[in-house]
């Protein structure tokens, strides 16, 4: 597990040193933060915004490190993204899911692409709408297979709409987002894709809402609907309350309280989410 992480980190660092003079123009906070899946968004819901601060004819690079600590599990995600032209986003994420109580661990790699179809999150009456794909592959299929998963890889397809409303609540700006996702993933992919009896895509809705308390501090809520296909244990929707601090255009920190529901028979998995992100 550490070897690929080290390789990713090394690639990130070398990219950062090579490309340290990225020139970007977007207004602070408009790139959002990076989800645990590597795509720009909130913490668990991908948004239509393109990661980082690259506007037209510019590029931007982000790297993030996120940990989620709930009662019986710990999720780590490390990722990076390249954004071009405020239009296209390519992302990678490596996730590990430690089974603290059961022992052992699960993991998956995610490669994501996102393409902005229409709208500008700040400037147009129409929301910014983006189409995204996430290719996911689990590290070790033994456990997912044993609990009834069909495949060790899958592709999520999502359509996200995001819009900022200026001066919406006591003079504060409001960020809204709605995402529709087609997925076969069990527990976002940690428990594989599809089941022995059902290999259909499930259509799920996800939403985020956040108030920008200041220019660079956002307080928000997210809800992520999830399928519940595996018979061995119940799977619940996820939600969180988050506070994001965009320290400047190069550094942001997100803290959240998350409720991941029941996971693999362990009920009421709640706890803390902490994410640090660097942007060029």
């Amino acid at each position: 597990m550490y070897q690929p992480m080290c390789i990713i980190l090394a690639v990130l660092l070398s990219l950062i040193s090579v490309c340290a003079q990225a020139e970007t123009s977007k207004v602070i906070a408009t790139g959002g933060t990076t989800t645990i899946e590597g795509s720009a968004g909130g913490g668990i819901v991908p948004w239509a915004v393109i990661n980082g601060y690259a506007s037209s004819d510019q590029w931007s690079f982000t790297a993030m490190n996120t940990a989620v600590y709930v009662d019986d599990f710990t999720l780590h995600s490390i990722g990076a993204s390249l954004s071009i032209d405020n239009r296209f986003e390519l992302s990678i994420a490596k996730q590990t899911f430690d089974l603290d109580t059961l022992g052992g661990k699960l993991g998956q790699d995610i490669v994501g692409v996102k393409y902005k179809l229409v709208g500008e999150v700040l400037y147009t009456a129409m929301p910014q709408i983006s189409l995204g794909l996430q290719y996911k592959r689990v590290d070790d299929f033994a456990l997912p297979h044993a609990v009834g998963a069909r495949n060790d890889w899958g592709v999520d397809i999502y359509l996200a709409a995001s819009k900022v409303y200026f001066d919406a609540i006591v003079g504060r700006n409001l960020v809204t987002n709605l995402t529709l996702r087609a997925t076969k993933a069990n527990q976002i992919g940690f428990l594989g894709f599809g089941t022995a009896t059902n290999n259909n895509y499930q259509l799920q809705a996800e939403a985020s809402i956040a108030v920008l308390l200041t220019d660079n501090i956002a307080l928000g809520y997210e809800y992520k609907q999830k399928p519940d296909q595996l018979g061995f244990a119940e799977e619940n929707d996820w939600q969180d309350i988050f506070m994001a601090w965009f320290v400047n255009k190069h550094l942001s920190v997100v803290g959240a309280y998350v409720d991941l529901g029941s996971i693999a028979g362990f009920g009421q998995q709640q706890g803390w989410y902490l994410s640090v992100e660097g942007t060029l």
Binding site: T124, A125, D167, G171, R172
Partner: peptide
């Protein structure tokens, strides 16, 4: 200029983008 006033002005100016 206070945040709320800034945001109110941006609300008026943002549609000029088009």
């Amino acid at each position: 200029i206070p945040l709320a006033t800034r945001n109110a002005l941006l609300a008026e100016l943002a549609p000029l983008y088009q």
